[in-house]
């Protein structure tokens, strides 16, 4: 049996677009990427189940023409799980927006600290990669955004949020 070419191409497009979006910094785009990849995986299960056929009810349908019910059951489980994760990621993105007024994933502060220590060790030469130790780490981490606002840091004071 050869798989349906339309499904295969759709899966490819979904995965490509999903991977591209996953590499973004903004959490909402990452979320859409996760949804696209998840749907690509679900379609893959349909391809794995073989050609579509009659409902798989023993006794009412001829057995040779039934479709395979198992992958469809697995896809249902996967869809429910993806739904739950999507809801959680949305909540996370909203919380990030509440706290910082943007939903971008920030850099690791400790990593920058270690990089800065290494840069101090190597004062013998200075190039474009050497970090200038002027700002505090928190400011630097907050500035390390590259999509919205052309990298301008979030200046708004965080809103008071009930703990």
């Amino acid at each position: 049996m050869s798989p349906n070419i339309v499904l295969v191409v759709t899966i490819g497009v979904l995965f490509a677009a999903g991977v591209y979006l996953l590499l973004e910094r903004s959490l909402s785009r990452v979320l859409i990427g996760v949804i696209l990849i998840g749907n690509g995986a679900n379609l893959l299960f349909l391809v794995a189940g073989g050609a579509a056929g009659r409902p798989p009810i023993v006794g009412t349908e001829p057995e040779g023409q039934m479709s395979d019910p198992l992958p469809q059951a697995m896809v249902l489980t996967a869809i429910v799980i993806t739904l739950g994760m999507t809801a959680f990621l949305l909540a996370l993105a909203y919380r990030s927006w509440q706290l910082h007024r943007h939903d971008e994933v920030q850099d690791d502060v400790e990593d920058r600290r270690i990089a800065r220590l290494a840069a101090v060790d190597e004062r013998a030469f200075t190039d474009a990669d050497t970090e200038i130790a002027s700002d505090t780490l928190d400011v630097e981490a907050a500035e390390a955004r590259d999509e919205t606002d052309q990298g301008a840091p979030a200046r708004e004071t965080p809103r008071e949020v009930r703990p």
């Binding site: 996953l22 996760v34 998840g38 995986a41 893959l44 299960f45 794995a48 198992l70 697995m74 996967a78």
Partner: peptide, 30 residues
């Protein structure tokens, strides 16, 4: 704020590995 930042990275990576696992299962079934 700190936990949301760390959690985001953790969750996105874990979701990616879950999708990879799911793809592997679909391929194995096929």
């Amino acid at each position: 704020g700190e936990r949301i930042r760390a959690g985001t990275i953790y969750i996105v990576v874990a979701l990616l590995s879950s999708v990879l696992f799911l793809v592997a299962i679909a391929m194995i079934y096929a």
